[in-house]
Simulated scan of single mutants.
Amino acid sequence: MAHHYEHFYLDPKFWVAVSFVIFIVLFGKLAWTKATQMLDGRGARIKAELEEASRLRAEAEAMMAAARKEREQAIKDSAAMLERAKAEAERVAAAAKAEAEASARRRERMAMDRIAAAEASAVTEVRNAAAEIATAAVRDIIAQKHTAAADAPLVDSAISSLPAAFKAA
């Protein structure tokens, strides 16, 4: 049984439809506002995150460039230090070699001086020993062969030759 109303606005279906449309319009507007606010907020967060990522990337690139420069400078510095160390090692080696050679020459000179001193001492000892032996031999010969009368001309001759001996010495 279908009811037929004289005017359409008297039909409850019409009012249900009108209220449904009003509800959808109000709820739709509210839902649309909330959805757009949520999407705008999310868009703003994404934009901020992208800006932050861009800023971080720029910082990372700057840090990477600085690190590369520092690494290159460190490589240059280490190469310079290595060259200085090599030069210093060569200088120290040359100085040590020169000092060793000088020390060897000093030792050789000291050894030669010792040898010369020992040789001079040996020559002096030999001369002294020869003089002592000659003196003892002359004493024995004079004691055996000379008398006081024979010694007088020898003593006179020795005394007369003293001024010439002093001049020679």
Rank of each mutant, 00 (worst) to 15 (best):
A96I: 07
H4Y: 09
G28H: 02
I141N: 01
V92F: 04
L56Q: 14
M112G: 02
A158S: 05
A149K: 10
A95M: 09
I133H: 13
E88F: 03
P153L: 05
I75G: 03
N128S: 13
T124G: 11
P153T: 01
G28P: 00
M1N: 09
V155Q: 10
K34G: 02
V126D: 15
E119M: 07
K34E: 02
S19A: 13
I133V: 10
D140C: 02
T135R: 15
R106W: 06
A2G: 02
A85D: 04
A122K: 15
H3D: 04
E101Q: 15
F166Q: 08
A48F: 06
G41S: 10
L10M: 07
A143R: 13
L50P: 00
A148I: 15
P163D: 02
F166C: 04
A118E: 13
A31T: 15
A111Y: 04
D140P: 00
A165R: 12
A102K: 14
S78R: 13
A104Q: 12
E51S: 02
L154P: 03
S161E: 13
Y9Q: 03
W32P: 00
R71P: 00
E70S: 13
R109K: 11
K47P: 01
A168S: 10
D156G: 01
A85Q: 14
A131S: 08
I133N: 09
D113W: 11
R91H: 12
A120Q: 14
A66S: 09
A131K: 14
I22G: 00
